[in-house]
Design a protein around this nucleic acid. Structure first.
Lengths: 250, 250
DNA sequence: ATCTCCCATATTGTAATACAATATGAGCAG
DNA sequence: CTGCTCATATTGTATTACAATATGGGAGAT
């Protein structure tokens, strides 16, 4: 432990790019997610796609099976490959998440993300204070320490930040919550690069994380919840400054 | 609308079984999920698997790609196919969910499910009261009506119940929340067949749903939250009676 | 003219084979 | 004992052939 090995981020596994069909998966996934092909519409036939990309049907089909497994397409004989409605997409899949929100997080996107975090994370902090094992307490502490160490190194700081939040939710021992945490982290990754340069300056962010950590270490559920709420309030403020009005639809 | 067409359940799409590789997907997925092969352990080589199942490598490999896309296995040259740690599994994927919790929901499982619902649904009800479009209000109302109609028909009742909860979360217009709702519904399906025969008798369940609906229709966020909390308290009570002590780790 | 049914056909699904790429672990050199 | 090389087993890709399936048009009946 404490080696910065990113143990909790392991859940954010994305489909490997090393193989040819893996590259096709990411390329086509991105195209579909960006709206290049509208839901309900059909893709070219396998034969045409193979020709366009200069790959064999084997590689192409294996790639399509991956996208199909994520609920983005459906392939039927004679009908061809059709893009499914976004409701069917496995939206918390790390790959889908990265394709849909690849690059440019806008205000609306950030607002929705914050909304989910506000719902889930206070409860998660509370549960973590109740249930974390000794090993998990150590892991959470380590993340906090790494954040402190990483004040000068933005990448290290972000990684530790992500791990901290993932570790807290992971300590809930609830398999239904974990994927949500993974998704939050994956989505945070793109946003932190924008907001953290601001957060890292005043060091207040670090203090807030340490407050959460302290409460959890002391097994103080209410305190953990309160500290998490304070942290989120601070995050919201920063985001408000960075992204401007996020159209709170109250 | 109001035709009981299950529009909100569409997100619970599972991988089609009609093809040969589709059948392999579900067979192997089930085997892995039930712990037939331990995480970290290797599957037999493709050649052996093909022989065992009497299928071509083509079909087998396409099936493996699907499981790989869901984060359950990883396949590397020379190393073979290894089962990944459960942390990597896409736990909110409808297929994974059905394989992991196929059939026998135990007390611990139900407890975790209730826990997530307690965290997410009150907030969801509140947001739905704020943001639901007119069409969504109608849809929620329809679900409620269908439940009332289905008092004598357990299947219709369950379907309407599921749709109601899905519709409420769907009305939040938050893409990060929707998959959670889908998962909750998929998981609820197995549990409702056990608990609903109890719930349907006293009709109190129906009254509680109608209270949530009324608050949302009246665009009363606080009321919606309170009504949802009351509903969940009732559900917890029923489950407690059905499953016995669920080891609340307070 | 309209409808029904059947069939030709285009497209995906499965099979079989061959070879390329890759990581493993044994064997050898130091 | 250590580090390197290389044969080898296993997955990855390509190619070809054929089977299964749904579409849409055309023949035939009403």
């Amino acid at each position: 432990m404490g080696d910065g090995s990113f143990q909790f981020l392991s859940g954010n596994r994305t489909y490997p790019r090393r193989s040819l069909h893996g590259q096709i998966v990411h390329e086509m996934g991105r195209r579909i997610a960006t709206g290049d092909i509208e839901p309900g519409h059909s893709l070219p036939s396998e034969e045409v796609l193979c020709a366009e990309m200069s790959v064999s049907r084997t590689a192409l089909r294996e790639a399509m099976k991956v996208l199909s497994a994520k609920g983005m397409i459906e392939s039927r004989p004679r009908r061809g490959i059709t893009v499914l409605d976004r409701d069917n997409w496995n939206a918390l899949d790390p790959d889908v998440l990265s394709w849909v929100h690849g690059g440019r997080p806008d205000g609306e996107y950030m607002h929705k993300l914050v909304e989910v975090r506000r719902i889930v994370e206070p409860a998660a902090a509370e549960l973590a204070a109740k249930r974390a094992t000794d090993a998990e307490l150590v892991a959470i502490q380590d993340c906090c320490d790494n954040m402190a160490k990483g004040v000068g190194n933005i990448d290290l700081y972000i990684a530790a930040d992500l791990e901290f939040h993932a570790a807290v939710i992971s300590a809930n021992h609830n398999e239904f919550l974990r994927p949500v945490a993974n998704a939050i982290c994956a989505a945070m990754l793109s946003s932190l690069r924008i907001t953290n340069p601001t957060a890292i300056k005043n060091r207040y962010s670090l203090t807030l994380h340490e407050a959460i950590n302290s409460a959890i270490q002391a097994r103080d559920p209410k305190g953990a919840r309160e500290a998490m709420l304070a942290h989120q309030a601070h995050m919201s403020e920063i985001m408000h400054n960075v992204f401007g009005d996020m159209k709170e639809q109250e």
